[in-house]
Design a protein around this nucleic acid. Structure first.
Length: 385
RNA sequence: GGAGAGAUUCCCAAGUGGUCAAAGGGAACGGACUGUAAAUCCGUCGUCUUCGGGCUUCGAAGGUUCGAAUCCUUCUCUCUCCA
């Protein structure tokens, strides 16, 4: 296996009392300042948001999904379009998930072997087969700034034996993925600029997490993700797993906690050394009428907001909070107006992006501990979102 | 004036002798959502309850029946058509 020099990621500042750090991930599409929250745009759209909304929310990078885009419109069409960036009109970095999460979420309609995973298409039920190599090639066609390896994400709870099988399979697949990455690199005469991240599995078993982390980090990916969390386990358990898992991951590479996006999970994750987060929560909750704030969700459809002429958060500078009241958002939701999804999602995405940004600022200024304590004391609302 | 049709729990609307506190939909009230098969899904929705059940409802009043939202009588109101 060949190596690239680790110039693409730097830790700029590390907290003394926790494992939190602020860093910079340099991609050819632009720098990503970490900790970072990445909104999810599975089908090449962050639902209900325009690229302008995302830019205004300071989203530095967004996600898309290999499985969904493979099914529709197909990676060849996206290649034809000039790549995913051009296709969707987004020029900042894009991270594409591999379809590994669909191994978990579509478990009722898939068959997994060491060789590959076969899914039934959500669109028409047709069979589609994913191998680590194929998934890498699809993401190459997209031109994903960060491509993820195909992994096996197990459900929670899962017995240790099955979790172990998934760990071993994930490792085998990771090696095949990296090999394919090297092939792609050779085909581009070493000029291929997009990154590939590996994924650590192991469910909630310490020994498995350790083994998986050691296995995956033995491969020189540009970054390492922690997968298989936030799949239904209790929060404290997730923090425990996270705590010991990051201990087995190198300091000098970015760490990405996949699928996590509750306020407390992001802050606790950062404290445990996580640099990157992604989650569908802000957009899904937005569409479902739940507005995120530091300590509670505002269910905007509730009667209490019918005549509440205040913004969601007075200390939030998002377009929604600056211009509209809860009463108006309540009305839009009740009337099932499209603008409801849009304005709610704008707030939620802005809020989480900003939350990660506040953590980063605290880290850079050397007062993350104070920020963390404020969070614990219920005083996060004194910060400007 | 004549001939029909109809009135069901907030709204629409099933139900034509017991299995009916009464289908279904909407509204209302509450909840869930973590690498998106999600603009989705789930509760509650007459009333009281020691959760066993009790009590009051199907325009109104009487009646038939062991038993009525359902059958009969009268009344009230609404709608359609013809003069």
């Amino acid at each position: 296996m060949s190596f690239h020099k680790n110039e693409h990621f730097q830790v700029l500042k590390a907290d003394k009392k926790s494992k939190a750090r602020a860093g910079i991930l340099k991609t050819w599409r632009g720098d990503i300042l970490t900790p970072v929250f990445m909104p999810v745009g599975t089908c090449a759209t962050v639902k209900a948001l325009t690229m302008r909304d995302l830019t205004q929310s300071n989203a530095q990078i967004i996600l898309a999904n290999t499985y969904h885009l493979f099914i529709r419109p197909g990676h060849e069409l996206i290649r034809q379009a000039g790549g995913l960036h051009k296709f969707m009109g987004w020029d900042r970095p894009i991270l594409t998930d591999s379809g590994g999460f669909q191994v978990f979420s579509l478990s009722k309609m898939r068959k997994i072997t060491d060789e590959s995973v076969v899914f039934r298409s959500f669109k028409d039920g047709a069979k589609c087969e994913f191998t680590p190599e194929k998934v890498a090639r699809i993401q190459e066609a997209f031109g994903s700034t960060i491509m993820m390896v195909l992994d096996e994400c197990v459900k929670y709870p899962e017995v240790e034996k099955k979790a172990e099988i998934a760990v071993e399979r994930t490792f085998k697949w990771a090696k095949r993925s990296y090999k394919e990455y090297e092939h792609i690199q050779q085909e581009h005469n070493g000029e291929f600029k997009n990154f590939m991240f590996g994924i650590v599995q192991g469910s909630v078993y310490k020994e498995l997490r350790k083994r998986s982390a050691e296995q995956i980090t033995s491969i020189p990916f540009h970054g390492y993700a922690i997968g298989g969390l936030s799949v239904g386990e209790p929060n404290e358990l997730m923090y425990d797993v996270l705590d010991y898992t990051t201990d087995y991951m190198p300091l000098e590479k970015p760490r990405y906690l996949m699928g996590v996006g509750e306020v407390n999970d992001i802050i606790e994750g950062i404290a445990r050394g996580v640099d990157m987060f992604d989650c569908v929560l802000p957009t899904r909750l937005g569409r479902h009428g739940a507005l995120m704030t530091p300590y509670e969700k505002i269910l905007i459809k509730n009667a209490a907001y019918r005549t509440d002429f205040t913004p969601i958060m007075p200390n939030c500078s998002c377009y929604t909070c600056k211009n509209f009241t809860r009463a108006y958002l309540h009305h839009l939701f009740r009337a099932e107006e499209i603008l409801s999804s849009m304005l709610n999602s704008i707030h939620n995405v802005h809020f989480l992006v900003r939350l990660a940004e506040l953590c980063r600022m605290a880290l850079i200024n050397g007062n993350f501990n104070e920020f963390y304590n404020d969070y614990k004391k219920g005083e996060l609302n004194k910060y400007a979102f």
